[in-house]
Simulated scan of single mutants.
Amino acid sequence: MGAREKVRNMRRYPVEGPNALWQLYRTVSPWKGVKNFIFIQIARYCPVLSLKNWIYRHILGMKVGDHTAFGLMVMVDVFFPELITIGRNSVIGYNTTILAHEYLIKEYRLGEVNIGSEVMIGANTTILPGITIGDGAVIAAGSIVHKDVAAGTFVGGNPLRVLERHSQEERSSNL
């Protein structure tokens, strides 16, 4: 077996009693959950990219760079969207899910998601909490992003693996 991969950057919170999801509203206001759910659903179906970004920035508290485009049906974390940062001029593909939390049996975990600038994320991708995706990375459609992705890297699959890597000079010449 090769070198152990870096564990996702997450904070762990143990719980006692019923599973952590059953105790959800001890960690998140039910009103925050309802408000976020309603506005996320509006943004998922909204065809106006600037309005989507306004909702993400001003109502959900996400950090979203200029000209970032969210495809139809993108699902951002309902309970902790403020833990999501996306750089400028990135594309988040159709039906992608971006999570910043995990509720398990004996604990829940929170992790910031940082997606760089000029990142392309293919349709139906799931990004798990605590992940960093570097500038210029490309994520193939249908991938599960369970580990960090270096800048300029093309990755895909489940489990996620490197498909191709470009230097900064190669990325600049392709623009």
Rank of each mutant, 00 (worst) to 15 (best):
residue 113 V to C: 01
residue 59 I to A: 06
residue 124 N to G: 12
residue 64 V to A: 05
residue 91 V to Q: 09
residue 62 M to R: 01
residue 6 K to P: 06
residue 84 I to L: 13
residue 35 K to D: 05
residue 56 Y to I: 03
residue 47 P to K: 12
residue 63 K to H: 14
residue 156 G to F: 08
residue 4 R to V: 15
residue 11 R to Q: 15
residue 32 K to H: 10
residue 94 Y to D: 11
residue 90 S to E: 09
residue 3 A to E: 15
residue 9 N to Q: 14
residue 9 N to T: 11
residue 109 R to C: 01
residue 67 H to Q: 15
residue 12 R to M: 08
residue 162 V to W: 12
residue 114 N to P: 03
residue 50 S to L: 08
residue 25 Y to K: 07
residue 110 L to P: 07
residue 132 T to K: 15
residue 110 L to W: 07
residue 64 V to L: 07
residue 8 R to A: 15
residue 110 L to A: 08
residue 36 N to H: 13
residue 147 K to H: 12
residue 52 K to H: 06
residue 96 T to M: 08
residue 51 L to T: 07
residue 105 I to F: 10
residue 103 Y to S: 04
residue 66 D to L: 03
residue 39 F to K: 01
residue 98 I to R: 00
residue 127 I to M: 02
residue 138 V to W: 01
residue 93 G to P: 03
residue 142 G to N: 11
residue 163 L to E: 09
residue 158 N to M: 08
residue 15 V to N: 04
residue 101 H to Q: 13
residue 21 L to E: 12
residue 42 I to S: 07
residue 7 V to Q: 14
residue 71 G to V: 01
residue 16 E to K: 14
residue 21 L to K: 11
residue 24 L to N: 00
residue 4 R to T: 15
residue 145 V to R: 00
residue 132 T to E: 11
residue 8 R to G: 08
residue 159 P to H: 07
residue 61 G to V: 10
residue 162 V to K: 13
residue 7 V to Y: 07
residue 56 Y to A: 02
residue 161 R to T: 15
residue 9 N to R: 15
residue 90 S to H: 09
residue 161 R to L: 07
residue 76 V to T: 09
residue 157 G to P: 13
residue 19 N to F: 02
residue 30 P to A: 04
residue 119 V to K: 07
residue 70 F to L: 09
residue 143 S to F: 05
residue 19 N to K: 05
residue 122 G to Q: 09
residue 118 E to F: 13
